[in-house]
Nucleic acid binder design. Structure first.
Length: 262
DNA sequence: AATGCAGCCAACCGCGTCAAA
DNA sequence: CTTTGACGCGGTTGGCTGCAT
């Protein structure tokens, strides 16, 4: 079911996630948030691309995510939304709390698509018999603009709400309304960390040999951001138990030795 | 018991969008 | 206006599982 483990030319791990990796990613995000997916694997001690980490978090690890066992109501809603929206999986996920866009997409492709096609055949047969008027048949090729607008409004509204469901929304409000997401300004102060290429394809290298002197510590990094412009930190909400000044390394939290010399 | 095959789903890939420089 | 980086989205794939033969 899961892809086998492999490493690309940059030493980035691909394939199925281990329990240990899940624990690392979960613990890191629950503690620090996903302030920058490109740098996160480096700080979390993962030999994964940021893109892979994001996907794993959004589809599997984030709180309140549900797996399997779609209810009939959920199935009906997916079919209904697909009729109205087409393949707008993220918009559909916004209407289905606890379900990721990926899971909805899989659900549609493996179960509901066939069912929907069968239903459509029945409708068309009835239409041919004259039992249903043609304008009663809902078309799904081109989503109704009014429906799309409705969904857009919904999404805009839900972003202001603490109860988010989809991966798209969740990045800003997954934890009791608190927001652990840090704006991209952080990244601007961390250019020393970044590799030359696209971080999605050229991420964390475990054997980086740069001098530690050239690198900011994790706390320096975040403190630097916080002091950069406190008034604009609307994206950052830290819990009371977290102390910026007394940096408590993630690895310590994770019962692993701290090693910033990579 | 062995083999083949279809179903299923986690993960990958490439492209588009948006914001900042 | 252009470039670049960060991220999200949707399509596709790899490989495990279970069923049929």
């Amino acid at each position: 079911m899961v892809k086998s483990i492999s490493f690309d030319k940059n030493g980035v791990k691909k394939g199925a996630w281990s329990e240990e990796e899940d624990d690392k990613l979960r613990a890191y995000i629950q503690r620090y948030g996903h302030w920058n997916w490109g740098l996160l694997p480096q700080f979390a001690g993962l030999s994964r691309s940021g893109k892979s980490c994001r996907l794993r978090w959004m589809n599997y690890l984030r709180p309140n995510i549900k797996h399997g066992n779609f209810t009939k109501e959920e199935d009906d809603l997916i079919v209904d939304l697909h009729n109205k929206l087409g393949n707008k999986w993220s918009a559909m996920a916004a209407k289905l709390p606890g379900r990721s866009d990926n899971e909805i997409k899989n659900r549609w492709n493996t179960h509901l698509k066939k069912r929907s096609q069968e239903d459509e055949m029945i409708v068309l047969e009835n239409e041919h018999d004259g039992s249903i008027e043609p304008d009663q048949v809902e078309k799904n090729e081109n989503p109704n603009p009014e429906i799309l607008q409705e969904v857009e409004n919904f999404l805009a509204g839900s972003l202001e709400s603490p109860s988010c469901s989809s991966g798209t929304e969740l990045s800003a409000c997954w934890m009791s309304g608190s927001d652990y997401t840090v704006s991209s300004e952080v990244a601007l102060q961390t250019s020393d960390y970044e590799s030359a290429g696209d971080f999605w394809s050229e991420p964390f290298l475990p054997d980086i040999t740069s001098s530690i002197d050239n690198m900011l510590s994790h706390s320096d990094l975040i403190e630097g951001y916080m002091s950069h412009d406190q008034s604009s930190c609307q994206d950052v909400t830290m819990s009371d138990e977290f102390s910026w000044s007394t940096f408590d390394p993630y690895f310590q939290y994770n019962n692993e030795p701290v090693d910033w010399s990579f």
